[in-house]
């Protein structure tokens, strides 16, 4: 019915009067890789748990794989794989036990996938879960989630505790077997440089608010750091400016789009524009969370999401 794997509207979760997730409209396209970025405690895990029905929303609605979570929760769970932040499974079961246990729940389960990934990620399947290293626990959680044959894979810090070789291998598996087909992946991660490799879409969340949502290519194509000098620019205002910082006699402006126009405006204010620089996701993320009041202020019906051109 829709081309969205996940759509939430004004989704909100309040714990003892604190809004952990605040009016979030999340839209995840089918077949995309959506990277959710935010500080510790920003609300990422609560948001992901609501999508799985593990946490009950205080307000708002959500639709996952075209289904309503209240009435079709089991059908959603059958088609959704999840690697939790805690990476907790039954402690006394071995990897083999856990495969047998999980397999029984999913008609789309693939033993071939288990064999392939256990080998390439080198998971010690005979060990009980409790005695595995944290990296091996993460690997096993990933293998179980991938083998499920799900349409939607939700990953909460999937690279946590993995050594560089294992991270690289998990990347390869995701790219070769899951990304770019019908499978949709929603992942939170603090490894922004790794998200930059695989994500189509990025959502930046802070204090429960979705500050920015857009295609990564569009975000990178639009955000710029403008370095200017020559005059006092402390009163310079433009709706696209996300942050302004004086820096050793220079001024740095981060703009979310229209950098050339802002630069022209700076020049007509008497400034010399020295550089217009593109920005990494890390720089964009920091600029957004440090100036959230600027980044979220909607102007003339526009939200930060307008950096994206949704088709």
């Amino acid at each position: 019915m829709s081309d969205l794997a996940i759509a939430t509207r004004q989704l909100t979760k309040t714990y003892s009067r604190t809004e952990v997730v605040n009016n979030i409209d999340l839209r995840v396209e089918k077949g995309s890789v959506y990277g959710l970025v935010g500080r510790n405690g920003a609300g990422k895990t609560t948001l992901l748990k609501m999508l799985l029905g593990l946490v009950r929303p205080t307000a708002g609605s959500l639709n996952v794989l075209g289904m309503d979570y209240l009435h079709e929760r089991l059908a959603i769970l059958r088609r959704t794989a999840y690697v939790s932040e805690s990476k907790a499974l039954f402690d006394t079961m071995t990897g083999e036990d856990l495969v047998r246990f999980n397999r029984s729940y999913f008609s789309t389960w693939s033993d071939d996938a288990v064999r392939k990934y256990v080998k390439s990620l080198q998971v010690p399947m005979n060990r009980v879960f409790r005695n595995m290293s944290s990296g091996d626990k993460t690997k096993l959680c990933a293998v179980l989630a991938l083998a499920q044959g799900a349409d939607l894979i939700i990953l909460d810090e999937p690279f946590q505790g993995l050594d560089p070789a294992a991270r690289d291998e998990l990347h390869r598996i995701l790219i070769e077997d899951y990304i770019g087909g019908n499978c949709t992946i929603l992942t939170s991660s603090h490894q922004l440089n790794e998200l930059e490799q695989i994500a189509d879409w990025i959502g930046i969340i802070d204090a429960g608010h979705l500050l920015l949502e857009g295609r990564l290519d569009d975000i990178k194509g639009n955000f710029r750091r403008i370095v200017a000098s020559g005059t006092d620019l402390s009163h310079f205002r433009n709706q696209e400016v996300v942050g302004a910082t004086p820096f050793e006699g220079l001024w740095q402006f981060v703009v979310r789009k229209d950098a050339d126009e802002v630069a022209q405006q700076l020049r007509s204010n008497g400034a010399v524009v020295l550089e217009i620089l593109s920005m990494s996701l890390q720089e964009i993320f920091l600029a957004c969370i440090r100036k959230e009041e600027l980044c979220t202020s909607p102007s003339a019906g526009e939200t930060p999401a307008s950096v994206s051109s949704r088709s």
Partner: peptide, 18 residues
């Protein structure tokens, strides 16, 4: 191929396709 280059570079196949 798109998928081969994506796997080699460890990036999203949609990016290579674009």
């Amino acid at each position: 191929s798109v998928r081969k280059l994506a796997a080699e570079l460890r990036i999203n196949p949609n990016t290579v396709a674009r």
